[in-house]
């Protein structure tokens, strides 16, 4: 059975996903995948994600593991012969998927969400409480389990002076920062929603 080409998804990506329109330039050389440290873990190599977008395969793209696996090493971006910021596209797709509720707030999506919340709340990251918050997202029991698994590491960090004792305080300009971030959210690609 032949899959139908449907340009509407590509348009959706161009209009709503950060750096999404850059994929137009892809000439399918494949150097992005070849350069990716997690290439063997991805269900679709990046250039294939781009092909799927052009073909209109929304589900395959938005549910792919690949768009959630970026380690942000930038190798694909520095090597892409067409200057496509592959990493930014992958981030953009992941963000879009999370925003649209297609990607469940688990794993990286959840962690990143908590990360951002903390920035929005206090302007900085508290390395001590962030993993805790993330773990608890999985539910109370597994959360505590994960936290206990992480505990020896935390204790080691603590013993070697690498953990702040006091909780991180809000930056002074947090109110203004929040206003800015609200504005940025609104002005960003695809709008606030």
């Amino acid at each position: 059975m032949a899959g139908n080409y449907d340009p509407s998804f590509a348009k959706e990506v161009f209009d709503n996903v950060d750096s999404g329109e850059e994929i137009k330039m892809c000439m399918q050389c494949g150097i992005c995948a070849g350069s990716c440290p997690l290439r063997h873990e991805m269900d679709y190599p990046p250039r294939q994600i781009f092909t799927l977008i052009r073909a209109g395969r929304r589900d395959e793209v938005m549910n792919s593991k690949a768009i959630k696996l970026c380690t942000s090493c930038y190798r694909c971006k520095v090597r892409c012969p067409r200057g496509i910021p592959v990493i930014d596209v992958m981030h953009g797709l992941a963000h879009y998927g999370i925003k649209k509720g297609i990607i469940p707030r688990k794993g990286t999506a959840a962690f990143g969400g908590e990360f951002w919340k903390m920035i929005y709340n206090i302007g900085r990251i508290d390395e001590k409480t962030l993993p805790l918050k993330y773990n608890l997202l999985e539910g109370l029991v597994p959360g505590i389990k994960s936290t206990i698994e992480m505990a020896p590491m935390g204790i080691q960090m603590f013993l070697h002076h690498r953990m702040k004792l006091l909780p991180e305080r809000k930056i002074k300009g947090i109110k203004e920062l929040r206003k800015m971030l609200d504005k940025a959210k609104e002005m960003g690609k695809g709008g606030a929603n």
Binding site: G30, A33, G34, Q48
Partner: peptide, 12 residues
């Protein structure tokens, strides 16, 4: 040599 065979999607 490492790279992607873009016809098959396999990692070379």
């Amino acid at each position: 040599l490492e790279g992607e065979n873009t016809n098959t999607g396999e990692q070379i």
